[in-house]
Design a protein around this nucleic acid. Structure first.
Length: 159
DNA sequence: GCCAACGTTGGC
DNA sequence: GCCAACGTTGGC
């Protein structure tokens, strides 16, 4: 069966890791570590495939916005930062023998010349159902519909 | 299994 | 910094 490409949105606080950080990373690639939410983990562990496209969103900044796109380049594997006592996201319940948390690798595709702000997204009728715009939405790894992904690209003047 | 208390996220 | 909306924890 042919793989169907999926679309995602990943949130990050630019103070801790920004799309500019991704741009200057080796091979413009990074592991998406530190996710400690089961629903988000399940998306990464069970549903993300190499080749899927990702919107990168900067939260807790001004303005909050989708700032670019990336691609999944490695499917899920254990998040070893959960085993590191010194790591901020350390979780003693996760072990190498029985890992609880997973991550994927992503590679930068593009930084939007024109970031698409949350305010802009809220004004677009085609995005009314987008998870990001749901009241109280906190999920840091969200599925995005293809039509939504395309609409955001269009708003950014990107492909 | 219920649910109160607690911790976190994230827009404003 | 505030606080609404969550998710998790743990006593019972």
């Amino acid at each position: 069966m042919a793989k169907t490409k999926k679309f995602w949105l990943l949130k990050t606080e630019p103070e801790s890791f920004s799309i500019q950080d991704l741009a200057s990373a080796k091979d413009q690639t990074t592991c998406w570590d530190g996710v400690r939410n089961y629903q988000a983990r399940n998306s990464m562990r069970d549903d993300m495939q190499v080749g899927d496209r990702v919107l990168l969103y900067h939260s807790s900044t001004d303005p909050t916005a989708v700032v670019g796109t990336a691609k999944i380049v490695r499917e899920s594997y254990p998040d070893h930062t959960a085993w590191d006592k010194k790591d901020h996201h350390y979780d003693p319940a996760s072990t190498p023998e029985n890992p609880r948390w997973f991550m994927v690798d992503i590679r930068l595709e593009q930084i939007f010349k024109q970031p698409v702000t949350l305010e802009t997204l809220r004004g677009v009728a085609a995005l009314k159902e987008m998870e990001l715009l749901r009241k109280g939405s906190r999920l840091s790894v969200q599925p995005v519909r293809k039509a939504e992904f395309d609409a955001v690209l269009k708003l950014a003047g990107a492909k």
